[in-house]
Write a protein that binds this DNA or RNA. Structure first.
Lengths: 206, 206, 206, 206
DNA sequence: TTTTAATCGAGACGGTACGTCCAGTCTTGTC
DNA sequence: GACAAGACTGGACGTACCGTCTCGATTAAAA
């Protein structure tokens, strides 16, 4: 039984409450700037504040520095986890592969990597990003694989972590390192997703 | 014995020749700074020049901007491509997986990603990096897979690009996204390499 | 006996009355900060409110801005006008010279000038300060001089304003412009007061 | 005999020399801003840099903070010491009184006080201003008085410091403290100068 | 006793300026 | 010419106050 209103343990902090509109405007502005040509480099606290129609103070009151702001903006950006049909391992993995692929294809999400890069100096930030954004996604994949092992669809001796990393790694890398991105990145991602899931399931050995 | 100045086919530009020592000192300084706690963020042209004991002019005479300098420094860092025994596909893939893993495990190489991130705005740089650093490595992997198909070790209908991406993606991601890196990253990388190659070869389906 | 509430011509506004303690605390805090090492520069409305244990609103409800607050604080600080014996012009002028000197010797009063400086932009403030603080003092000096003329102690053709300015100017300047202030500022002020009054009375010509 | 060029002990510092134009532009801009309606409060380092057409860095390279810059600007502003005829003490004192008066009448000089005020926290600045600007002027007055004593024009027992302070104090104060400044400040200053010198010479006693 | 209305503290708001740090360029004199 | 030194413009960084604006909680007199 939770506390009743009159005994609420969170008695509303004193002072003027923070503006929810400001919160939203700042995040929006950040994402906007991120999506423009300059990418992360185009995000400056001053620009964010200006575009959000907000004082710099208001930004700094909520986020202690640029990195933190960008991580939060990015976290707000991740596509929601997809619904899984649960009919077969193959179908579920395909759904997940597509979803992860989408997270790395669209204009704004691509720059997650830029930020992540700067995290060598902010280990606690990277940790937070991992915990809040990455792990939940990996966990879903793990769940599908575990279920597959249980139902006998997958090998009983499967190293789940390895399989997760292969799926996520392949979908993450796509469009980033290989030769000039194709004219039709979405189509390419789709084909890759299918290819990866099938290769993973059947193996590549003859 | 290299060509003496007077027989050089490049008839020796007038004025003082560029100092080879400066070139080296600058690259070294860049790598040093990269390896320090601040990572890429700690690399500023001023710091590089100062540490190299060189004027800023001298740096800018050779590299037009910070990104270019860092790419070149990083390129000098990549582990050389390993020798392949050629006895079996599995053995060769394992060798390659280890090598790629190593490229993303050690202190300095990790920050390649930071830089890559900033490349959305410098497509020609990303292209150059892909062409000079990444493609040669992918090509080696491709070669092994093609040979495997030819010898019948691998499925004849194998989608080689997909397989390359799975191998490289998995090894690239390792240690980056999953929960706090293990105490023994080198050992973990080794285990991952084996797991990935085997999963890739045999598939994960029952 | 002062007017009782019910006969008061100001029939007590509705709502909670202003706290007299707050008034005092704010003025005290201002003077405190003024007296600290940072001087006027150390007085910020936030610091005043904090030190007075009062909300910023409470300060701004009483004083419209920093200048006004500081003037009022300073006005509260001026030494009261001294009693004049009236036995001789010399004695009275000496008393006044000492009093004015004291106003410019002690730690907090010194900074009156700082504030006055900023008044070029607030002419109405300067006017108020002149009217409420300075003129009353000059008027006392004027009175003494007029009386001296009347009693025949001073020249009949004396330009009173000039004489006032000389006395006040000399005592105001002391300790401010000349080389490093003496170890014993009070003693120096005393000697200066005597010297000034005598030079003024007798002239410096042979 | 000073060092010849080739053995110069100041062998020209390495690097690009500082731009003399920038120096001048910055000082000009500062004085400009000082003279505008806002006075000292209108002088911000950003405004100075902008108006001087110069980067903020360039200002900060030369002056460590706003106070220092303003003092230097102000010092450059003082009217040059007047030539003294030397024919009589009265004439010379009158010349000096007028000069000092002028220093406190014109638009820009008035704000010297504002700045001086802020010096309680920068004792070394005040010291410098005293030494470089004020003392030279007092010294000239002292010289005239000493000469007067020597020629017998002034009392042999004259306390020179007191007389200096009276003259300087009176002329400094004029236009600052008394009731609203007259329509014709220059004329008023002239009349005050004469009145002060005469009162000083003859005394005010009957 | 219940309004009613101005007070209180706390603290968020949009701004402006501070003084610092780099990027990339330019300008010296020396080698 | 290249070199080291270092000045140049420009612009973002993160901090500190200004004067204004809500909040919820007192506090007294009026109803």
């Amino acid at each position: 039984m939770t506390a009743t209103p009159q005994t609420s343990p969170v008695p509303a902090r004193p002072g003027r409450p923070r503006s929810a509109r400001a919160d939203k405007a700042i995040l929006e502005a950040t994402l906007d700037l991120l999506a423009e040509e300059a990418g992360v480099a185009g995000v400056s606290m001053e620009a964010v504040a200006a575009r959000a129609g907000v004082g710099k103070t208001t930004v700094y009151r909520r986020w202690p520095n640029k990195e933190r702001l960008i991580v939060d903006a990015l976290a707000a950006l991740k596509h929601p986890l997809p619904e899984l049909a649960g009919r077969s391992v193959r179908e579920d993995l395909l759904t997940l592969a597509r979803s992860i692929g989408a997270d790395h294809t669209d204009r704004r999400s691509r720059c997650v990597w830029n930020v992540l890069g700067g995290f060598d100096r902010h280990p606690e930030l990277l940790a937070r990003y991992r915990q809040e954004v990455i792990e939940p996604r990996r966990e879903v994949v793990r769940g599908v694989l575990r279920r597959g092992v249980a139902t006998g669809e997958l090998r009983p001796d499967l190293d789940i972590e390895v399989a997760v990393t292969m799926l996520v790694g392949a979908m993450t890398l796509q469009g980033r390192v290989p030769a000039p991105p194709p004219a039709d990145p979405a189509g390419a991602a789709e084909r890759l997703a299918e290819g990866v899931v099938d290769a993973l399931l059947r193996g590549i050995a003859a």
